[in-house]
Amino acid sequence: MSADGASRSRSKSLPARIRPRPATVVSVLSVLVGWQLLSLLFPAYRFPGLVALAGDLRLVVGGGTPFDPLVQFGATVARVLVGFAVSFFLATIWGIAMGSWTALRGYLAGPLFVLLTVPSVVWAFVGVIWFGLTEFLVPVFVVVLVVFPYLTVTIWEGMGDIDESLSEMARAFGASRRAVWRHVYLPQLRPYLFGVARIGLAVSWKLCLVAEVFGSATGVGVAVKYHFESFENGMVIAWAIPVMVLIYGADRLLRRLERYASRWQPETTGVRGMVE
């Protein structure tokens, strides 16, 4: 193999994740084989094998169930997005407020902690008692009440890690309040905001499903509940897969953005560290 200097340095600059590592291949294969072996232990309706699951998935996506896939998936995705957006918006403001005014923190930490201990089903129950079966209200209510305190606490912790000496530096140079936020606070908060967005999105989807089971007439949750009641585990799993893939894709996208946003952080090669 002849590799001239240019092409070699090019291949080196490619991130390692493009070539799947052997450990990855082994891991993916062993999980698939494990799933298949496990399915042999149970009747198919309880634990479908990979082939049966693929069949169920085709049924779900092709509309071969009592539910229209476009309507259910559309409803769920819309609710997840609305619930997540509201939580993220509120949590950013609330978290920054808590981080900025220590006096406020003492009073807000307690209520948030109590909110965090309430199980999501109970929120769904309360939501249904209050609002009945709704298109958006109950799912968004549940998502916001659970995701919002969680995101707030994380952002607030991020505020605690902010390097105050940099803010002092900025003030010493007479930087405006706006400039301090833009150039000092936000860049330091950014990793937290990204982390929180990625987790928040995944959690929002999980909660939305719970809320839909009890408080909605449409959505993936309703379809899942229907198949659960007829003991069709394969269909239950198959209904979840498309949204899982979607959320996974969104997570990867956010990860890319995060990498781009923190490109000022040099990748450590480790050699320097070894020498000194």
Binding site: L209, A240, M244
Partner: peptide
């Protein structure tokens, strides 16, 4: 792990119940 994060608890619970 990133994929695992997206598995809804509800589905795990319901599947576990029937299983």
């Amino acid at each position: 792990l990133p994929f695992w994060m997206t598995i809804p608890t509800l589905v795990v619970v319901l599947v576990g119940m029937v299983l």
